[in-house]
């Protein structure tokens, strides 16, 4: 390694480490603020003098946060399972079957990627209020039950599965669905994992549609609940920061457990280009 390369490396480490502080400070500030009692929240020092967990106790006992948490878990898990199943099924069908209209169907599905959600929310809302989906889990979930991007992704991966393998199973008398479910799916597990985790995070964080479709506070998801809770408690920033921490922590945990899949998933999302 030459001298200039070494200097270059040192500078890189220096800048990158400095940026870590910028990137993580808001998280620290959020947690630190959540540990301050009301008396200290407006005082200009970083660390709480009398750190307390009272804010957490208060939020968990007398607000709807636990309920919102459950709602979010339920919504994010259900949509993710649905997406995994249907996206891979469609991806598989388009990749592995030859049938009239195959290309048109694929293009039709992909073309829906061009429609911004914002354009659909008003018709969705009208539809939901007519069909009584307002304030229901289904109402929050239905727009995300199948995704065009996931289909695109799964098709890419399904195409790499050799046809011989599937035909061999066919000869062994495995049903068509069985071939998909028991042969093809296990082969694309890594892609499924990335799709699952990205989808989970996306649904956990979704805001605009859940905000519109739920009117009763009991049916809010965590982000909508947090926005509502915060605007209600504008003078209690310590509680707002506690709520923010509570909605962030599960994701940070998921993030550290599944970091590989997440990074891979983000890379895959660049695949479209």
């Amino acid at each position: 390694m030459t001298r200039s390369e070494r200097i270059n490396k040192v500078i890189s480490y220096f800048v990158l480490t400095g940026l870590i502080i910028v990137m993580t400070f808001p998280f620290f500030w959020m947690v630190l603020s959540s540990l301050k009692p009301f008396r200290e929240i407006y005082r200009p020092y970083l660390f709480p003098k009398n750190p307390t967990l009272d804010n957490y106790k208060q939020i968990l006992s007398s607000s709807l946060f636990p309920r919102w948490f459950l709602n979010s878990v339920l919504v994010a898990l259900s949509t993710t399972f649905s997406v995994l199943f249907f996206d891979s099924l469609v991806g598989y069908t388009i990749a592995k079957y030859r049938f009239p209209g195959r290309n048109i169907i694929f293009i039709f599905i992909l073309s829906t990627l061009m429609i911004p959600t914002e354009m659909l929310i008003i018709p969705w809302y009208i539809m939901s209020s007519r069909l009584g989906w307002i304030d229901s889990y289904w109402g929050i979930m239905f727009p995300g039950m199948i995704t065009a991007f996931g289909i695109f992704l799964m098709r890419q991966f399904m195409e790499t599965i050799p046809d011989d393998l599937l035909d061999a199973a066919r000869i062994d008398g495995v049903s068509e669905f069985g071939i998909f479910y028991r042969i093809a799916l296990p082969l694309v597990k890594p892609a499924l994992a990335s799709l699952a985790i990205l989808n989970f995070i996306g649904n956990w964080n979704a805001f605009l549609w859940p905000l519109i479709v739920s009117s009763k506070p009991r049916m809010y998801t965590l982000p909508v609940g947090l926005a509502y809770f915060s605007s209600e408690n504008m003078m209690h920033w310590e509680l707002i920061m506690t709520g923010a921490t509570i909605s962030t922590i599960p994701l940070i945990i998921v993030f550290f457990i599944f970091q590989k899949q997440i990074i891979r998933g983000i890379m895959l999302s660049g695949l479209k280009g």
Partner: peptide, 9 residues
């Protein structure tokens, strides 16, 4: 992280 949380932070 949820955008709502980071916005409020």
């Amino acid at each position: 992280t949820p955008l709502v949380a980071t916005s409020w932070v």
